[in-house]
Amino acid sequence: MNDRAEGARLFLKTIVARAYPRVVAANRQKSWVFFDLAFPLVGTFAMVFVYEGLHAPKQFLGFVVMGGAMLAFWQNVLWSMGAQFSWDRDNGTLELYAISPTTFEGVLLGMAVGAMFTTTIRGAAVLLIGSLLFGVSYSLSGILPAAGIFLLTLAALYCLGMLLASLFLFYSREAWHLSNALQEPVNFLSGLYFPVKALGAYVGGAASLIPLTLGLDAMRQVLLPGTPRFLSPGLETLAVAAQIPLFAFLAYSSLRFMEARARREGKLISKWS
């Protein structure tokens, strides 16, 4: 087997192996029922009651339920992608990744694949329970396009997560501070509980750098007719699709830079430095 084929084989094996703990954790760690299902549902319920109290149109309940489902992904990207390498460094795992023949890209992609699998199940549960409880109805013709937009949004979001993983190593000894700091602002800017149009052109434009913002807005537009339009769903989908190679490239460059700096300075990867 030539070097290229051997490298591809190792890359795929790494993805499967690193995804495995994430998938296994979904079954063994029962606490996910609280953290990934109950808590997002509680937040969703609160916003639903606010809209109901204001006698908002029914589709607003749909905004909130869909936002609640997508919230699970953002939390997952922050805590299980962005902060993961920092935790791996603290317990010595990152060093073992570094001296093995595999690549950080393979490890991160495995983390992302595993996380997407488990979080999709949880997000779907939030969507189903919220929709049934509050009687949210969706446009049937929008389901297929929404599924496509959803996959593109996930890809862009987890590429951003891969970028965050190395950025967190650069800028924080305590990754959870950064995760905490990024959580609420992004919840707000991505319009999890309201239409993105409400942010206005400038703030909405800046918030569009977060894949969740445009992805969620596009899904709402195709599933909930009458959603206030920030940009057309086609344009928003295109922008999200463009973010995939952008964040993938930035993540790759950042990882290369991190690895080189780690070897040069003896920092970042090793827990003792």
């Binding site: 703990p21 073992l96 093995s100």
Partner: peptide
């Protein structure tokens, strides 16, 4: 152990 073995191909 299996997971780490995969990182070595």
């Amino acid at each position: 152990l299996w997971m780490f073995s995969q990182f070595y191909g």
